[in-house]
Amino acid sequence: MSTSNYERLLRLAARTQEQELSCTECFDVLPQYVDLEVAGAAPERQLPLFRQHLEQCGVCREEYETVRELARLEAEGRSPSIDDLRRTL
């Protein structure tokens, strides 16, 4: 067992709040947060608990990062085509 495991645990414990979003609440807020972020707004002010949940929950964080990438590409008119995606699997 390395100290890094304990460090990871302590970082998570340090940022623990009494009230946190559940994963379902995070899922429900995610598209709104992403769209605000892609539009250049500051969603963390409007939805502070969302960011806190992402710090604690790796699976939700990974989903958020993927949706954000998709939404950014779409907003920039650079969404990959299905054929390109299939070719590069």
């Binding site: 899922f27 598209p31 769209d35 990974e62 989903e63 949706v67 939404a71 779409e74």
Partner: peptide, 17 residues
């Protein structure tokens, strides 16, 4: 509260991950 497509992406990304 979001684009419909962003909302829809959330389901597909969740399912695929």
């Amino acid at each position: 509260q979001s684009h419909f497509t962003t909302w829809a992406y959330t389901f597909a990304v969740n399912t695929a991950l």
